[in-house]
């Protein structure tokens, strides 16, 4: 009867059976709300983001917040040790989380974290990549598509310029980075499905 919400932003992956699903969700919500607010603050700091209509800002954040968080919290996934560190500071093995029914999503998250970590981005490169991730989010519901596309183009140019100026001998890094964008979209869909499944049938 224990309820499982094995997201590393949760304080603990397993809640006691005595707690109602609503209580478990509310507790989890309190854990992820500060992280979501930080993504919004990050978005506001992206040059040009606040010039978009408020509607389009919300649309990009709705589809991009998890993707930004996935990049930001990649370091919680240790591909070498096959562990995930939760907000309570405790590390859980992939095997134990798999046993809780989190198999394929976690496998995909480990795969993503490993690929991104392998690229060895500097903090400012990572921040610019997160900006590209956010502005490259699903366009459904966007009204001023041209403005979003222009902002995306500017950010991609800035990221390419930063990376190629630092690593003039490595022409593969930038395209490898862009290849992570579809991975993130797939992860986003999978993650949403998992959370919705909990909301419907914990």
């Amino acid at each position: 009867g224990a309820k499982v919400l094995a997201c590393p932003l949760n304080s603990c992956p397993v809640a006691p059976a005595s707690r109602s699903s609503q209580e478990v969700w509310e507790s989890f919500s309190q854990c992820f709300t500060p992280a979501v607010k930080e993504v919004v603050e990050f978005a506001k700091s992206i040059p040009g983001f606040q010039s978009l209509s408020q509607h389009d800002q919300v649309m990009l954040l709705k589809s991009g917040t998890f993707q930004v968080l996935m990049v930001r919290f990649c370091s919680l996934f240790d591909p070498k040790e096959r562990t995930v560190t939760f907000l309570n500071g405790q590390s859980y093995s992939l095997a134990s989380l798999r046993a809780l029914g989190m198999g394929s999503l976690l496998d995909a998250m480990f795969d993503f974290s490993e690929k991104l970590g392998y690229l060895g981005l500097e903090p400012d490169e990572m921040a610019l990549f997160m900006a590209v991730v956010l502005v490259s989010a699903d366009r459904s519901g966007i009204v001023e598509v041209g403005a979003v596309e222009q902002l995306q183009e500017n950010l991609i140019k800035a990221l390419r310029s930063l990376i190629t100026s630092r690593r003039p001998d490595d022409s593969t890094l930038f395209p490898k980075l862009l290849l992570r964008l579809p991975d993130l979209r797939t992860l986003n869909n999978h993650h949403s499905d998992k959370l919705l499944a909990f909301r419907i049938d914990p």
Binding site: S29, T33, V36, K37, V40, E41, K44, Q50, S53, Q54, H55, Q57, V58, L61, K62, S63, T65, V143, S192, D193, L195, L196, R199, I200
Partner: peptide, 27 residues
Amino acid sequence: FSDPASNLGLEDIIRKALMGNLEEKPE
């Protein structure tokens, strides 16, 4: 459940966080 962000409460958090500093703009 065609809009997961709304159903998970994400949209509400995002709107409130944005409204902290944003003035309402005409759509």
